[in-house]
Simulated assay, not measured.
Amino acid sequence: MIDPTLIIVVIGVAAFAISGVIAGARQDANILTVLVLGVVTAIGGGTVRDIILNIPVFWVKDFTIVWIAILSSLLAFLFSSFFRERIWKILRYADAIGVAFFTVAAINKTLALGHTGEVAVIMGFITACTGGILRDLLTGRPPLVIASDELFVTPALLGAILYVLLLDIAPQYTTQWSVISICFIIGFRIIAIETGLQFPKWLQMRPGKQAKK
């Protein structure tokens, strides 16, 4: 039987690789640049997670993950002309999928190592955000984590907390809770994208008149 966590990792890697390629397409990048962006985006978060947890880096242990990232990047590059008109929205959708799957995968891995739920939530959050941050920095624009107008990191954080709570209540339903949490994160993020959902004004920092000059 195929390990559900492996499926989650593979989908997350593919989604993040595609988001990296889309970001590169906005910069008219060449195929080599696209491959670099796709692979770095796909494996960046998991690499940082494993370094923090002091365990073998996941793609070093199984290089198949890198090949999946390369293949996904190539496919996205070949078909990039079909979605160029809506490239910004597709980038955010692909990012939402990668964030959701990587959050759950990181929590599963952290809990399997015997760490607490609190640590698992933080590792899920770090894993979900790091790949996108590296992608955005490499393409020379502010990371979506801080530059996005609508809610970006909140769905991942709330989804991570939800997943850990569900596992604590009924750990025998890991697969079901994984699906629910992934759908929650993706659904929440899509609603934020489509509606421009934000925190209330009183929970946002707004520049004063002097800062706007």
Rank of each mutant, 00 (worst) to 15 (best):
P143F: 07
L166K: 04
V164W: 10
T33H: 07
V48L: 15
V66T: 14
N30H: 09
P155H: 12
Q204L: 15
I7V: 13
T130R: 05
I193V: 10
A15T: 09
I68M: 08
L203Y: 08
S81M: 08
H115I: 11
V119F: 07
V36G: 00
L113C: 06
A100T: 01
L137K: 08
A100F: 03
L71T: 11
D95L: 01
I169P: 01
L197M: 15
D28R: 14
G208D: 14
L53T: 13
V153D: 07
M205Y: 15
I122V: 15
F184E: 06
I191D: 00
I87V: 10
Y173L: 14
F16L: 10
A112H: 01
Q27D: 10
I180K: 08
R84L: 08
K212Y: 12
G132N: 07
D62I: 09
I18V: 14
V13M: 00
T139C: 10
D28F: 09
G98M: 05
S81I: 04
M123F: 04
I186F: 02
T41S: 12
Q204W: 05
I8Y: 08
I2T: 10
T110I: 03
P155D: 13
M123T: 02
T5P: 12
E194A: 03
F79M: 07
V145R: 08
P207R: 04
Y173I: 10
W177S: 11
L71G: 05
R92V: 11
A147P: 06
L134F: 10
R86V: 07
V40Y: 01
Y173Q: 14
I133W: 01
T41H: 01
L74E: 07
A94M: 15
F58W: 05
A15Y: 04
E150L: 01
L165N: 13
A23T: 06
D28Q: 12
A120C: 03
V119A: 11
G98F: 02
R26W: 06
L167T: 06
I193N: 01
A147M: 03
R92P: 03
P56M: 15
I146W: 12
G98S: 06
A100I: 02
L151N: 03
G117P: 07
P171M: 09
V179A: 15
I107F: 02
T5L: 10
I68F: 07
T195V: 05
T130V: 13
V60F: 14
G208S: 14
E118Y: 12
V57L: 11
R141N: 09
I7F: 13
D149V: 04
L74F: 11
R49P: 10
W59R: 06
R141A: 03
E194H: 02
M205W: 14
Y173P: 02
A25H: 10
W202M: 08
R84H: 03
A96N: 08
I7N: 13
D95N: 06
L165M: 14
V60P: 06
E150G: 05
P200C: 10
V36E: 02
D136C: 03
I146Y: 12
W88H: 14
